[in-house]
Design a binder for these strands. Sequence first.
DNA 1: TCCTCCTTGTCGAGAGTTTGTAGAAGGTAC
DNA 2: GTACCTTCTACAAACTCTCGACAAGGAGGA
Lengths: 290, 290
Amino acid sequence: MESTTGYLRIGELSRRVGVPPELLRAWESRYGLLSPARSRGGFRLYSDEDVRRIAVMRSHLASGLSAAEAARLALASPAPPAAPGIDLEATTGELRDALDRFDDVRANSALDRLLAAFGEETVLAEVVLPYLHELGDRWETGAASIAQEHFASNVVRGRLAGLARGWGQGIGPRALLACAPGELHDLALVVFGLAVRARGWRVTYLGPDTPLDTLADTADALRPTLVVVTATVRARFRAIRDELRRLGERTRLAVAGAGATGELARAVGALHLAGDPISEAERVAREVLP
Amino acid sequence: MESTTGYLRIGELSRRVGVPPELLRAWESRYGLLSPARSRGGFRLYSDEDVRRIAVMRSHLASGLSAAEAARLALASPAPPAAPGIDLEATTGELRDALDRFDDVRANSALDRLLAAFGEETVLAEVVLPYLHELGDRWETGAASIAQEHFASNVVRGRLAGLARGWGQGIGPRALLACAPGELHDLALVVFGLAVRARGWRVTYLGPDTPLDTLADTADALRPTLVVVTATVRARFRAIRDELRRLGERTRLAVAGAGATGELARAVGALHLAGDPISEAERVAREVLP
DNA sequence: TCCTCCTTGTCGAGAGTTTGTAGAAGGTAC
DNA sequence: GTACCTTCTACAAACTCTCGACAAGGAGGA
């Protein structure tokens, strides 16, 4: 959850609430009153919720309660914005239904509610990715028309594009993302981009059907930490095997999508991203260092 | 004398905002607070947006936040509130430049300012469409790489997708939009959709590479007032001529894009949208009644 | 009353992080 | 040629971390 007022370090929090830093740390370790996030270096980062708890704690202390009791009450006091009671299953069902009926308004509204209640990562992992898979399956079995698939893809793509705004910004390692020549399915790649973005990377996105030579030129120009190429069928990779190998010699490369195999990855000197986009983003963020 | 709307070098910026150059560079490299353009020789060239970000950064620092946190908030802070004195030419130039340099942040910021100052219709007509044409030309003459074209298309598409939110909503006549089988260029079609939307129509969008039979089924299900099919080359239309004619018998049909000809339109019983997307949307809104 | 145990606020040592600033070596603009 | 700019590296001050210790005050028992 993103705070609008920003995270405070312990010194500034102490000044604002009038409680010495040592005591704030003591209240945290003894009663679990606060659960600040941490900076990469380990500094405590407090949110508005922590400020509120401290206020409650102090008011109970002032009325004569012991510290332990005051902390217990502060912890039990209502989390103010009261977690919205929206049901993931039901709302996902509504999304599905709306997309099937070409109702972009209701679909977007369902996505809005899901995003607000569960956050980007959860919605991507629990709703968008399963839906994309399901859509593929239904299309193969003829249960969904191509029109439905197109319509739904476009709505989802529009939404993801909104989430992706500014994903090239920042100072983290850069990922350069592209679909293999001929490959048009890019939604999972966008999800991967959003997931590495959430882990501090920058993303440069070239999208569907990107020729390998121009990808290589771009890699030379931007010097990304990782280049990711995806395809849904093996033939797409087979056609560009040699070029991929040359690219893999010059830059850190990963292949992904149903068309990627471990054998291919080994042959071209690439990482094989075989799992779902979010797990693989997690892995990349953990293992691939600049 | 440097112009107010032009670029500033780091010394001049430093004097204006009262922050030493070393610190400006540190904020850029540590937090990605600024993303200045560069001169040919590598000098940083700052825009008004950078000045604004520094002001936000300083105000947060003054309120006691850490530098990292202040920078995070400054980056997340909304783009400037529609300066009426903004220069269309200059900002369009900045957009172009940003897209050429794979800088999605600056591109989106330029688009923000343009949209706020001139409105959707003007920006589509005066900026987006000319840019798309130019990109096509530059690509043909080899002045732009395919990667640049892909990158720019994706940024623009993302932005248009945001504008398109909810375009299926309402009670007006409905337009069903699709690209012919094999056709992947859909940006002009999206612009057309936005333009008819602005004239009170509802839009259902199926996007690139839509098979004719599924388009026909969808038309039967939704009973739109107008179905629009586009292609950039004639062969795409030739391949589906008979199906188009059958579709034209059942519903009001229009063909558009560089691949559409008056002869084709007559032969399949369709309207020929030959002009730019916005003029044609204007015409459709005027002439095609439910 | 004295003693012990517990709670609670405070303090310090030693190590690590964050951030503003500075210098070296070299390139750009006019 | 001069003023200005680049990147890279380094550094010190301010801040925060953890861990351990300690004293004041209160509760309960002998």
